[in-house]
Simulated assay, not measured.
Amino acid sequence: MTKKNYQDKNCDLDTLSKDINSWFSNQGYQVQSNKTEGAWVVQAQKTEAWRKAVGASRAFNIVIQGQPNDFFLK
C-alpha cells in the first residue's frame, strides 16, 4: 500500500474526501465513505455482474488521515 504525505497544504480534508468520492462516482464506481475522528475512508468498487463472474470485482480503499497542514493518503 502506497502512502503519500502532504505538509503545509492547508487542505480542507472534508472537501478532499468529497472530491475523491465524486471523482470515483463520476467514473462509474459505487462509492461508500466514512468519517471517524481524524480519518476519512473512501471505498470505491465497480459492481457489474460480469466483474463478479470473472473475479474482477475489487474495491479501492483510500484513507485520509491527519490535519489540514500535515496529512497523508494511503
Rank of each mutant, 00 (worst) to 15 (best):
N10A: 09
N10C: 01
C11V: 13
C11T: 14
C11W: 06
D12K: 06
D12H: 04
L13R: 03
D14T: 11
D14S: 09
T15F: 11
T15K: 12
S17L: 05
S17D: 01
K18T: 12
D19R: 09
I20Y: 07
I20C: 06
I20N: 04
N21Y: 15
N21T: 15
S22H: 12
S22K: 13
S22G: 11
S22F: 07
W23R: 15
F24I: 13
S25E: 10
S25R: 10
S25L: 09
Q27Y: 04
G28S: 09
G28Q: 05
Y29R: 05
Y29M: 06
Y29V: 04
Q30F: 06
Q30V: 15
Q32E: 12
S33C: 12
N34A: 14
N34E: 10
N34V: 14
K35E: 08
K35Y: 02
T36L: 08
T36M: 12
E37C: 06
E37V: 10
G38F: 02
G38L: 04
G38W: 02
G38I: 03
A39L: 09
W40P: 00
W40T: 03
W40M: 03
W40N: 01
V41Y: 14
V41F: 12
V42M: 02
V42N: 01
Q43E: 14
Q43D: 08
Q43H: 07
Q43N: 15
Q43V: 10
Q43I: 11
A44M: 03
Q45K: 11
Q45D: 01
T47V: 13
T47R: 15
E48L: 13
E48G: 14
A49K: 05
W50N: 02
R51K: 07
K52G: 05
K52A: 07
A53K: 09
A53I: 02
A53G: 03
A53Y: 06
A53E: 07
A53S: 04
A53Q: 08
V54Q: 01
V54W: 15
G55V: 03
G55P: 00
G55M: 02
G55Y: 02
G55D: 01
G55H: 02
A56P: 00
A56S: 06
S57R: 12
S57D: 10
S57V: 02
S57K: 08
S57Q: 10
S57E: 13
R58C: 09
R58I: 10
R58P: 00
R58Q: 08
A59L: 11
A59R: 15
A59V: 08
A59G: 08
F60W: 07
F60I: 12
F60M: 09
F60V: 14
